[in-house]
């Protein structure tokens, strides 16, 4: 076997390197996980595998809307339209889901402050107040939680 009169060692080495490269490429196509690089330098499926290990705790806006279509509608009119019910009411309890007679606890004004207290870390477009300078801390007297631009 003589290519271009190359010495036999060199020919063998070139063939060997070629064989290693080919087997590497074959191994690579066979062994690279399917979802690799879907989102970044990792196996995309790792995310869904990880998520599926956890049970969801939030019921979601649609589930609340089945029983409270009116609130859903009013909420959609105001500037709180993008908030989910559970952001203010907390995770819906199993008892409440089974029997509406088991009422959820009503949110306190504390919940408003969590989002609206002025903070330099919040974006400027977001409406913020300095709570101690803002009338009083019983927010619901002047703002309707589901329609914050409306007064009761």
């Amino acid at each position: 076997m003589r290519f271009f009169n190359l010495p036999p060692q060199i020919v063998r080495l070139i063939l060997l390197i070629f064989a290693i490269l080919v087997s590497y490429l074959v191994a690579r196509t066979l062994l690279t996980p399917d979802t690799f690089r879907d989102y970044g330098f990792f196996r995309g499926a790792a995310l869904s595998e990880h998520i599926s290990q956890h049970k969801p705790v939030f019921a979601g806006k649609a589930a609340c809307g089945e029983r409270h279509p009116d609130v859903l509608k009013t909420l959609a009119k105001g500037s709180h339209k993008n908030l989910s019910c559970e952001a203010c009411h907390g995770v819906v309890s199993q008892e409440h889901l089974k029997d509406p007679a088991n009422k959820m606890l009503k949110p306190t004004p504390q919940i408003c402050v969590r989002c609206h207290e002025a903070s330099p870390s919040r974006p400027a477009w977001f409406k913020q107040i300095i709570v101690k300078d803002h009338y009083s801390d019983t927010c619901f007297e002047c703002h309707l939680p589901h329609q914050p631009n409306e007064a009761p």
């Binding site: 010495p7 036999p8 060692q9 063998r12 080495l13 060997l16």
Partner: peptide, 18 residues
């Protein structure tokens, strides 16, 4: 040996050089 059995002086000199 990967199938290379050439041990002539020329081949060995090349081995040495490489």
């Amino acid at each position: 040996t990967v199938g290379v059995t050439d041990v002539s002086d020329k081949a060995l000199a090349l081995d040495h050089k490489l």
